[in-house]
Design a protein around this nucleic acid. Structure first.
Lengths: 217, 217
DNA sequence: GTCTATAAATAGATAGAC
DNA sequence: GTCTATCTATTTATAGAC
């Protein structure tokens, strides 16, 4: 796993989703409040970024008192670091897309990337990371590790030749740029273009970076 | 000119750089304070974004009192809108790059884009726009208008065929993504790669979008 | 044009009752 | 675990002297 290992310094003792036997650990069924707060935080951070989101607003969104946020997460910063945890779905999806045939690989990578972004359960954390990456060091660090990590994990064995590091970074740049104009800056008509059409346009770009032989022209 | 016409609503009566004859307008030599404040604002906004930049900090950077910032610009928001004014150099550079031969066009576009970003006098405003685009509506609007505007102005006559709007937007996406990973997120090794190598890698990508015939694969 | 002083709102964070 | 109440710092912005 190549994910945000460096950033979220806190272990997070989360009660299990379903109440069950607890061989020594934290008692289950305690309350879902902690996770409600985290979900609310992701929602707010995703929508407005770190600075413009107040602890009070997060508490209100979660339907709890402001003091509870500090009770569970200590500081706004620590809560934010927890909110940055990007779901494993993206690296998994990319790896799965990379497994198949070499033909159409770039297109499948783009489609996998877009599919994860459409996933409502995965989006808030990714949106939080992307939106805050420009103004928050930790978010930028997570984005760096995550983007290159998942792509290297998926394409490390496929991509060979010169300047491998640069080409991986440029694939990441392509996908990050796409998410930026599609979901954040909303550069018309990117947000309204179908995944299929985007894959048709961007797939060959990824393939270009994957090809060890630079194009003749 | 296709630049931020929609966003900076304020006219900006700036005294000329060099004291000279003034046929009716504002008296020159009044003081450079107003521009010092604007420069300081760009510097601060570029470095930390809108929210994390306080009026006090801008004043300190400019070496003036905080009240002066409000005296000249009214509110922090209005000052920010002024700071977003992107220099004309970028659309000019892109147009110049587009003027030449069709061969190597993509590469020249990338080089022109990179060259303007290296320009110390142009960077703060662009950095301000890019950094704040994710969290500030006006900055996002300026980035949208500016990116598509300058590219359409430069390449409008060259780019033909299907999905012209989308392809223009994707060229903008490519260049914005590059600036993001090179100057903001600093995705290794993009920040340390020479303009020539980046142009060699990204030029063919731009050419791909310029080509009315989609690639065979 | 430039400053001091301060208003008014909001921020993150904590103490302590229940 | 959850809440009330509050502290302290910082923010944008303004009024008014010089």
């Amino acid at each position: 796993m190549t994910l945000p290992r460096s950033t979220p310094p806190e272990p997070h003792p989360q009660p299990p989703e379903t109440p069950q036997r607890h061989p020594g650990g934290r008692r289950p069924g305690e309350n879902r409040t902690r996770e409600q707060i985290l979900d609310a935080a992701r929602e707010c951070f995703a929508e407005r970024g770190y600075d413009a989101t107040s602890v009070r607003r997060i508490a209100e969104t979660a339907g709890v008192d402001q003091a509870l946020v500090h009770h569970f997460y200590g500081t706004k910063e620590k809560l934010f670091l927890n909110a940055l945890e990007i779901p494993l779905r993206m690296p998994e999806a990319l790896a799965e897309a990379a497994a198949g045939d070499r033909v159409g690989l770039g297109s499948r990578i783009v489609l996998a990337h877009l599919r994860v972004w459409e996933d409502a359960s995965a989006r808030p954390a990714m949106m939080t990371t992307l939106r805050s990456a420009a103004t928050h060091r930790s978010a930028a660090a997570v984005l760096r590790d995550y983007a290159k990590g998942s792509i290297r994990e998926a394409l490390g064995k496929v991509i060979t030749g010169e300047d491998v590091e640069l080409r991986i970074a440029l694939i990441a740049t392509t996908l990050i740029g796409l998410s930026l104009t599609r979901h954040l800056v909303r550069l018309d008509p990117v947000p309204d273009t179908s995944p299929q059409e985007l894959a048709a346009r961007l797939g060959p770009v990824i393939d270009l970076y994957l090809d060890p032989v630079p194009p003749a022209a």
